[in-house]
Design a protein around this nucleic acid. Structure first.
Lengths: 333, 333
DNA sequence: CTGAAAGCGCTTACAG
DNA sequence: CTGAAAGCGCTTACAG
């Protein structure tokens, strides 16, 4: 069954390709009767525009690529899931298709399936980038080629790129202060891989607050899974000095909860746990997790608006939006 | 900055478009020296193939669409996230790009951003469909137009479609039997929306097992969020006859856990909770959740293999793969 | 080993 | 209100 094309419709109706094209695109200057006739034939033959051909002609695809770091999904956590869904709903509302590409900023894969390659070859109009690292090869390339993109996170390398970010320094800072004010004296911060800017910023804010208040503290990088957090919590509780865990990613807090219970300690009486992300499920943990919220909906809304603006205007006016984190108090601290 | 095309490279090197094309596609019959020369110019000018044009010519896009039900993500749960990631990794390994489209089977949206429309217009070679309903409009269309697709779930409407599914009848059946054998006497099953085939099948298996063993039971549909499960658990515990909750979707079990605790009841001594999905976090719940596993990796692997086979052969040989669920015993029953 | 021509399905000026 | 021609960037026969 061959696909029916605009030429077929033209032949079938006796009109020219151009007239059919006018009807399809709802352009003026077509007699009402002609329009009706053509529409009927289109309907009958179940014709629909070949987006490929259209995009080739217009050099506009109405597609956006979302880059998320690969590592086989290891670093792709529940916050990413939440953001993803939010982006997809919002972009679709605005008439954009979404391609998701697991690519990292560390190396450029020369593979037709790599989202990076898609952008080079004109299969998308713009990009949203997660998990940016220093000297990110994707950023370098997109910037050099004038392809519109918005970074989720800060960009330290250039000052002419657009980004939306949570104030991650502040996340670390207010988290530490909150624990300190509640009377905890030995705080541990668990973070994901050190390559990601976000983690280094949280660490900085955390450290500054602890130093200011002269509080014992330590930082552990590279804890990406619930299991790793579980094991590390056990190890640290062995030493019996830590009295509070500050965990980047609520989804991993469950690992700490379990280790703490296994040591027969009580949350928050003996040990506090403070999360980051404020996931929907955190409220249902036992005890309900106190966490630092980052308003996913607002985050994605800002990024989508920014990107669409950039794709339309094509002029460079890099905006940088910083969102403020907020502690949501529950019962784990 | 205009994008450099194959014509530019041809002019720049003095060779014909065709020869350049040969080099790009690694075809034989090019003198080594010619190849080197052309490759150098390609490199210098940062040329890359326009996938749009290539796809138009080849009528192959190497793209697969993943359909997930919309409803603003309400029914899109953690199991979907897991499957999604698994699909993306596997499809990428095979050289396919992934477009994710939140579309439901209930209505056909006439919007360029709807994944459904993308398929009609040749922007993808095949599709994987989640959350299929009876008389699903996407299935009807794809089938009528000979577009390769694999359903995640059973198809009751046609017998010439391909699908991979968990044996959901068995899920309901073994879940109920497991609870009954552990001595529970009044079982409640929580399910998502009734429109989805998967939920109706689980209900059927559950009911059959309960009837066989003459056990008191009831089924509640439309529980899609952790909050809804939380509230409903409270309501049912009020009546104080229910002694076990069988919950479709581990991520929602946390809601039941909380309600049970708030009634000062113990899991599993007073009330049992049995989940479905066996999510990574279930092991870390308190108490660790007993759940029915469905092997996400195997699931997606089968579906990807099936789809790729169909896209290549183009011949109709609908395969139907049924996976067997397995109870993973932990401490909540 | 290399190339000129035709065409994938559409739209953009331009002409009538 | 309608249409013929050119072209988007590529590949597929075909010819030499």
């Amino acid at each position: 069954m061959k696909k029916v094309t605009i030429t077929d419709i033209a032949k079938l109706t006796g009109y020219s390709i151009k007239t059919v094209s006018r009807v399809i695109n709802n352009e003026p200057n077509v007699r009402e009767e002609t329009r009706r006739k053509i529409l009927r034939v289109i309907e009958e033959h179940n014709y629909s525009v070949n987006l490929l051909a259209k995009a080739l002609r217009n050099s506009e695809t109405r597609t956006v690529i979302l880059f998320i770091d690969r590592r086989r999904g290891k670093y792709w956590n529940e916050w990413h899931d939440l953001m993803l869904k939010s982006f997809m709903v919002k972009l679709k509302e605005r008439g954009y298709k979404v391609i998701i590409s697991p690519s990292s900023g560390e190396e450029m894969i020369n593979n037709d399936a790599d989202g990076f390659h898609l952008l080079k070859s004109g299969l998308a109009d713009g990009a949203i980038m997660f998990d940016v690292i220093s000297n990110d090869c994707r950023v370098n390339y997109l910037r050099a080629n004038n392809i519109p993109f918005v970074i989720i996170g800060k960009d330290k390398d250039f000052n002419d790129t657009a980004f939306v970010d949570l104030d991650n320094y502040l996340v670390g800072y207010i988290g530490a202060e909150y624990l300190i004010k509640k009377g905890y004296k030995n705080i541990v911060l668990f973070l994901g891989p050190k390559v990601f800017n976000v983690n280094r910023e949280r660490a900085k804010g955390f450290e500054d607050a602890c130093k200011k208040h002269n509080t014992a503290h330590s930082i552990y990088y590279g804890l990406s899974t619930i299991k790793e957090v579980y094991k590390m919590t056990h190890i640290l509780l062995e030493r019996a000095v830590v009295d509070s865990f500050f965990i980047s990613g609520d989804d991993k807090a469950l690992g700490a909860y379990r280790a703490i219970r296994e040591k027969a300690l009580k949350i928050p009486e003996n040990v506090a746990v403070l999360g980051i992300d404020n996931l929907p499920s955190s409220e249902y943990m036992y005890p309900p997790l106190t966490s630092i919220d980052q308003n996913v909906e607002k985050f994605s809304e800002k990024a989508v608006n920014l990107l669409i603006e950039m794709m339309h205007s094509k002029k460079k006016s890099p905006q940088r939006i910083i969102l403020t984190p907020k502690i949501v108090e529950r019962q784990s601290v």
